[in-house]
Write a protein that binds this DNA or RNA. Structure first.
Lengths: 146, 146
DNA sequence: TGTATTCAGATAGCAAGCTATGCAAATGGC
DNA sequence: GCCATTTGCATAGCTTGCTATCTGAATACA
């Protein structure tokens, strides 16, 4: 149990992620942006247009997950979908002015939370933490692909 | 975007947690134990009995989340609930022999995944990673409580 | 050209987290 | 002893992840 809670990389990572998400939801509330909207928001922040498939790949979620996220974003007035004239299977997704107007606020929130989370670490430790996370992710991604 | 994906502690932590969970689900499949069952399993592994409230506290989830988890565990034959004679509000939760019989296998899976995830880190880095995670968690828990 | 395959998206259904709310049992103050 | 508060649990309803499966459009090949 102490083994699990305190010494398990998986347990600690999962708990940290839940705490990050809670704080993110709290701070994003006034913007109308949900955590799952963020990858879409940043992918289309330059006013560009992508298909659902491309957005799913960038967000590293499965296609039905992205479809549901886009449905909620459309409901909330954050995106528009229009049919691709060149390929009638595709829907082209674009941010609305409402969503574009929240980008700065969202970036400030993300930055504030990351700063808060790392505030007890020395500057070198912050880079170290991110580096270790990237290496752990690398191993798990390789396993996931296999 | 590169800022978000590569340099955001929140993004990286969340992505790592999702990868951990995917691998855990995959490896736990033959045991019939879902990831959310694990805190309950370990809390009651010694054959003891706890209330739903106590289990929720240990797992650090809200009461309705634990209620739903216990419902699924009951459906899967992993726990029994019996009324507390001393306090008719409480249900006393105990693991079934079926669940008790999976504990060793679950511990092996947890251990294997943690070992895999950290296999590219030097022994000192592994301790460092867990320590940094604990410190980040500490800050976020304090913020969450506030 | 026509059929087989691949590809994009939709939909159904489940897991596991959350908040809000209701109810019945226990407790505490008067 | 009675009423108000607290406490434990259930339930409704939401988000966000997943897999499995269907459909219709595009493509490839024979």
């Amino acid at each position: 149990m102490a083994l699990i809670r305190e010494n398990s990389a998986g347990y600690l990572t999962n708990w940290a992620a839940r705490l990050f998400t809670r704080e993110l939801e709290r701070q994003l509330a006034p913007t109308g942006i949900a955590p799952a909207y963020m990858p879409v928001l940043f992918a289309l922040a330059d006013g560009s247009t992508l298909t659902q498939k491309a957005l799913a790949r960038r967000a590293a979620v499965e296609q039905p997950t992205m479809a549901a996220t886009l449905n909620r974003m459309q409901r909330d007035g954050m995106i528009t979908r229009r049919p691709d004239p060149a390929d009638r299977r595709c829907a082209l997704v674009t941010l609305t002015p409402l969503a574009l107007g929240q980008i700065d606020a969202v970036e400030r929130v993300v930055s504030a939370i990351n700063t808060l989370a790392l505030e007890q670490l020395a500057p070198g430790e912050r880079e170290q933490f991110l580096g270790l996370l990237r290496r752990v992710i690398g191993v798990l991604e390789a396993q996931d692909a296999a």
